[in-house]
Write a protein that binds this DNA or RNA. Structure first.
Length: 671
RNA sequence: GCUGGAGUAGCUCAGUCGGUAGAGCAGCCGCCUCGUAAGCGGCAGGUCAGGGGUUCAAGUCCCCUCUCCAGCUCCA
């Protein structure tokens, strides 16, 4: 047999293992956990101690500090955890235990839920198993053998029964799938544990460098609400203690940046119980930030040819019956209100209102595309367990637009929306979209196959025309049409779905929309739904967490704080603040009866971007001493110069010239 | 909605075995008059989430409800 890696090729004896081949090829290192094996039909992942097949193969080592390597490491750690759980809870039934982003989990059916103390005990037992240096030994079984082996494991049996023959099985002439199990074998040869698993795995348990169990949670078997709820344990594992520590620190950082905490500490938001779950107040400081967001989107929508409308918050239920929302989302709408022999509902969507704006008179093809736009506040009765601050609220505001257009205009309109979203992400410092996904027809949907295919095609064409590589999320579309979702990453690497663009061929028919074309006949328009922020509240939360509350100058609720060094200079401080306000800046004076140090500290903890310290020197010269949040200080800056600089910075920020957070370390401040 | 965890002053938290509620910060008052991250002193602030129960006695033990958190499911 023959193995190749890159330009190197070696001949091997029959029965040689992957490890031996990698060694002969000179690429076997301590951090190699498995190998990608290509025997002519694409890469498969193989264990290091697995014997190579006859014939020629291409080998690539999989190292621990790679996405594939970490998956293998985490998968092995999940097995060790399941073994530890079985040792401590012999009656536990095992479900599945895959690697996931940043970690792994394993689901168990146990008599009682795991407690935090159980987690500690399981982790302690895992450390013993790591020290025991158990080898992971692969074996192949038939379906009957596998069913027999897991006779007392109903979840494993269900998995086994559902497996279909793989491409490899078919290619190799088997009409039944091959099942693989991994036995954990002690150094003395005793079998400690066996689990159904596709593999590959680490060579032995002591090759797990660092792990931590994180939390327990309930999880439905196979993710289905009508199946039993199992107990899931989440953990994480990394290629080094350092990598684990870094990850745990990142989790800590994410917790500290929670928008609910920042919103309260910085007096941006108030979410008292008296309001009700999922509802938020924007306090003055939060409202200033939000206003900048709203002003930005309003100006830009007008500049891009949208027409503003205002619509009410409640309307007769019939609108939602016609649109189909009542049928599809009735449970997620606030209940009806009986008024004068009619039932009214809080609006969960703005579409019907924009449609009524469209149908207010006969429309001509000359008017299309007609882009109707508003900041529309909607109310959805989100299930109690899903409400999550501003990220998942029961009342929120969409920068919602509906574009009514001809079929041949759909692609251009969608491209326009994608471009608009790109500009928005830049202006708000989120950089380029991290993911563009086209969602196709879901199971529960309305419309014909032809309509769906046409709309999906239009979205994919538009995504391609925008220059973004897009992915396809099969079956993730809305019930009335496919959509494009655009995601962005925040400052600490988390990904958020923000913009959504949907093609709708359904509502126009339901509401009997039409326009008069050049032929004098009625034609049905298409609709494009789009929300670029998605939800203003949600975007606000993402922005808040991403900036850690240190908003760029143009968004900051208080842009300038003037601090007199002593009460004698309060007059000049007020003059400075007045001048700043005259230039359109949000400026306040802190003349509280505190020491200068204490007032500087307040400005810093409140993350005010610009603090101006003024005393006798400054008053005499008409200057200010400038201190930037997180950045440098400058003395003797003429007030007029400073104000010009800040105005320019605000304008640049609004246009997206500066990334979020850049204000904190603006190099122009000098030493 | 489901599983688990939690709820004490505006915020962060302490409160032992069931014995009658405490700190720091913030707030208010006074002193201090200050040049770049916390000056000093005092005062006030509580239906211990809400309701019910056990007990001579409940923040503490039991039950119910509400809310929040972590997940699951869902997200037009």
């Amino acid at each position: 047999m023959q193995a190749r890696h890159g330009d190197a090729t070696v001949e091997l004896d029959a029965g040689a293992t992957v490890r031996e081949a990698l060694g002969r090829l000179g690429v076997m290192r301590a951090d190699v956990v498995a190998a990608a094996v290509d025997r002519g039909a694409g890469d498969e992942q193989w264990d290091l101690d697995r014997a190579l097949p006859d014939g020629a193969v291409v080998l690539d080592p999989i190292r621990a500090a790679t996405p594939e390597g970490r998956d293998i490491l985490r998968h092995s750690t999940a097995h060790v955890m399941a073994q530890a759980v079985t040792d401590l809870f012999p009656d536990a039934k095992w479900a599945i235990g895959p690697p996931v982003e940043d970690g792994f989990y394993y689901d168990f059916d146990v008599e009682r839920p795991f407690t935090p103390e159980d987690l500690e005990a399981i982790e302690a037992r895992m450390r013993e198993l790591l020290a025991a240096k158990q080898r992971f030994v692969r074996a192949e079984l038939t379906r009957d053998e596998a069913l027999a082996l897991f006779a007392d494991q109903p979840y494993k049996r269900e998995v086994i029964e559902r497996v279909e023959p793989s491409e490899v099985d078919v290619a190799e002439g088997r009409d039944e799938p091959t099942f693989t199990v991994y036995r954990n074998v002690d150094p003395d040869g005793g079998e400690a544990w066996v689990d159904l698993c596709r593999g590959p795995h680490l060579g032995s348990t002591d090759r797990i460098p660092a792990f931590r169990l994180l939390r327990t949670a309930g999880a439905y078997w196979r993710g289905q609400e009508d199946r039993p709820m199992l107990q899931r344990i989440y953990g994480t594992a990394w290629e080094s203690q350092q990598a684990l520590d870094d990850h745990l620190r990142m989790l800590e950082e994410a917790r500290a940046r929670d928008h609910r905490r920042l919103g309260r500490d910085l007096e941006l938001l108030h979410m008292p119980e008296e309001l009700g779950p999922g509802l938020a107040l924007f306090l003055p400081k939060g409202a200033h930030v939000r206003r900048q967001m709203e002003d930005w989107i309003r100006e830009e929508t007008l500049a891009r040819g949208y027409e503003p409308v205002y619509t009410p918050h409640v309307a007769k239920e019939d609108l939602w019956r016609i649109s189909g929302h009542l049928e599809n989302y009735g449970d997620l709408m606030f209940p009806g209100m009986e008024v004068e022999h009619a039932t009214y509902r809080l609006k969960p969507m703005n579409c019907p209102f924009h449609i009524l704006a469209y149908t207010s008179r006969t429309r001509s093809y000359r008017e299309l595309p007609l882009r109707i736009s508003e900041l529309g506040t909607v109310y959805r009765f989100e299930r109690s367990g899903v409400v999550n601050g501003l990220l998942r609220a029961r009342g929120f505001t969409q920068d919602d637009s509906h574009i009514f257009c001809r079929a041949d205009q759909v692609v251009d309109e969608v491209v326009g929306c994608i471009t608009f979203a790109r500009d928005l992400y830049r202006a708000f410092g989120l950089g380029e979209p991290s993911r563009v996904a086209v969602s196709t027809r879901p199971e529960k949907s309305i419309g014909t196959t032809e309509q769906w295919e046409r709309a999906e095609r239009a979205l994919m064409d538009a995504a391609a025309a925008s220059g973004y590589a897009y992915e396809v999320d099969e079956g993730e579309g809305a019930f009335y049409g496919p959509k494009i979702d655009i995601h962005a990453r925040d400052a600490i690497g988390r990904e958020w779905q923000l913009t959504t663009i949907q093609v709708d061929f359904n509502l126009p028919g339901r509401f009997d929309l039409s326009y008069i074309a050049e032929d004098g006949q009625k034609h049905e328009p298409f609709m494009v739904h789009r929300a670029l922020f998605g939800s203003i509240e949600r975007f606000f939360a993402v922005l808040l967490e991403s900036t850690n509350g240190a908003f760029p100058l143009w968004l900051a609720p208080e842009q300038v704080r003037v601090v007199p060094v002593a009460a004698d200079f309060a007059d000049y401080a007020r003059d400075v603040a007045e001048a700043a306000r005259g230039a359109g800046l949000r400026a306040h004076v802190d003349d509280a009866d505190d020491t200068l140090g204490a007032r500087i500290r307040s400005a810093q903890t409140e993350k005010v971007p610009v603090t101006l310290v003024v005393g006798g020197d400054e008053r005499t010269a008409g200057t200010v001493a400038v201190r930037r949040y997180g950045g440098g200080q400058r003395k003797d800056v003429p007030l007029a110069t400073l104000i010009d600089e800040l105005r320019t910075e605000v304008e640049d920020g609004r246009r997206g010239a500066l990334p979020v957070g850049a204000d904190a370390s603006d190099g122009s401040d000098g030493p």
